[in-house]
Computed example of a mutant assay.
Amino acid sequence: MAREIMLGSLGEERKHFSMELEFLLRAKPKWREIAQGILFTDGDIVSHGVEAESAAG
């Protein structure tokens, strides 16, 4: 029972994180621009982050 409660709670936290991230990406255009260079890309996340941040306007 406790395991099911914890797993359900974790699912809620993922949902809340996703909603908060989407809110920030909509409100902060520069964040969205940087995130687009990082999210859902293959390869090194850190390298993509550095490149996306330096390319952001």
Score class of each variant (00 low, 15 high):
F40D: 15
E22C: 02
T41S: 09
K15M: 02
F23P: 00
P29I: 02
F17A: 12
E4K: 09
T41E: 07
K28Y: 11
M6C: 03
G8W: 03
G11V: 01
S47E: 12
I34G: 05
S47V: 08
A56Y: 10
Q36A: 14
L39G: 08
A35Q: 04
K15R: 09
R26Q: 02
D44H: 10
S47K: 10
E12R: 04
L39A: 11
S54I: 07
R14G: 03
I34E: 01
G11C: 05
W31Y: 07
G37T: 14
S9M: 09
R32K: 13
G57C: 08
H16W: 03
I5G: 06
G43K: 10
K30V: 14
G49N: 06
M6I: 14
G8R: 01
K15L: 03
S54V: 09
S54M: 08
E4D: 11
S9H: 05
M6N: 08
I38H: 03
M6G: 01
Q36I: 07
E22M: 09
L25M: 12
A52Q: 04
S54H: 05
A52Y: 03
F23K: 14
A52T: 06
F17D: 00
A55F: 01
E51T: 15
L21C: 08
T41W: 01
E33W: 02
M1N: 05
I45L: 15
G57V: 12
S9Y: 04
G43A: 09
L24G: 01
A27G: 00
D42N: 13
G43C: 13
V50P: 07
G37F: 11
I45H: 15
A55K: 12
L39E: 11
E12S: 04
G11Q: 10
A55C: 00
A27T: 13
S9W: 07
A27F: 05
L10S: 10
E33C: 04
K28C: 11
R26H: 01
W31R: 01
L7R: 11
H48C: 15
M19K: 08
A27W: 06
E53T: 09
F23A: 15
D42T: 14
A35L: 02
F40H: 15
A52W: 04
V50N: 08
A55Q: 13
M6S: 10
R32W: 05
S9V: 08
G11I: 00
E22K: 14
V46H: 10
Q36S: 15
E53M: 09
F17Q: 02
G49T: 04
F23V: 02
K30E: 14
D44M: 06
G43Y: 09
R32A: 13
E51D: 15
I34P: 03
E53F: 11
E20C: 10
E20N: 10
E51W: 13
H16S: 02
H48I: 13
R26Y: 00
K15C: 00
K28P: 01
E20L: 10
K28M: 10
E12M: 05
E53H: 06
T41L: 07
L39N: 05
M1G: 12
P29D: 02
L25N: 01
F23M: 13
A35V: 11
A56L: 12
R26W: 00
E33K: 12
F23N: 14
E53V: 07
K15G: 00
A27N: 08
L21T: 11
M1E: 04
W31D: 04
I38S: 01
E51Y: 15
L24V: 12
G11H: 08
G11K: 14
E4R: 06
A55W: 00
R26N: 04
